[in-house]
């Protein structure tokens, strides 16, 4: 049982890594990873919504008629996103300001509805919570890695700690750099994973 629980969590990092293997949730991945800290915050925000929505959806799915399960799940997810938004606005206004628009967009993040449909509605709440933690942590780790790479190349710093004077390669802070870094990391990840 313990091994199964552990594998539910670790699969989010490797076997079912949401970014590199499932290739879901590309919008926040590309947009918010301009620096390591932004990637980390976005990942944690998604983790929060993912775990709670997975738990609630696994609990309500037996009583929700099939034809309306998507609207019901969307309402649940949107509720948690709005809760997160209000709480962040109140207690971490700085983080809320940098992530801004991308917090409400968590509602349409395919990872969350994807996990609800593929996992939470067929499993118990405990397994669904672990699944949410695993996938959420995998997403957080991935976003942070992309953020670190982009911050090093684009600004010459890591987590805000600057190690070069002057500017980095500007393109990596902007959208083209996001695609490039994501592409190369995806290749690298899959090459290592195949071995």
């Amino acid at each position: 049982m313990a091994g199964k629980n552990l594998s539910l969590i670790t699969k989010g990092f490797f076997k079912e890594n949401p970014t590199f293997v499932l290739v879901l949730g590309m919008c926040p991945t590309l947009a918010t990873t301009t620096s390591a800290i932004n990637g980390l915050e976005m990942g944690l925000a998604t983790l929060f919504v993912l775990v709670l929505s997975n738990i609630v959806i696994s609990l309500i799915s037996p009583v929700v008629p099939d034809k309306v399960h998507i609207p019901a799940y969307i309402v649940v997810i949107a509720t948690f996103v709005t809760v997160l938004q209000l709480v962040m606005q109140a207690y971490t206004p700085g983080a809320y300001k940098t992530l801004g628009l991308f917090i409400p967009l968590i509602v349409v993040n395919c990872i969350i509805l994807g996990r609800a449909e593929a996992f939470a509605c067929k499993h118990g709440w405990w397994e669904s919570a672990l699944d949410g933690i695993g996938i959420g942590l995998g997403f957080t780790a991935t976003l942070t890695v992309i953020g670190i790479v982009r911050e090093i190349l684009g600004s010459g710093s890591v987590f805000g700690w600057k190690f070069i004077s002057g500017d980095g390669i500007l393109a990596f802070v902007m959208a083209p750099g996001a695609f490039m870094v994501l592409g190369y990391l995806l290749v690298l990840f899959n090459k290592i994973a195949k071995k």
Binding site: P62, D66, V76
Partner: peptide
């Protein structure tokens, strides 16, 4: 309560989900 895919069941289910979510918000 079993999942019923008739109009009443669907409406009731969505109503309850929205009611609880609205309360939480």
């Amino acid at each position: 309560m079993a999942a019923k895919s008739n109009i009443t069941g669907m409406a009731l289910c969505l109503f309850l989900v929205c009611l609880v979510c609205g309360g939480v918000l």
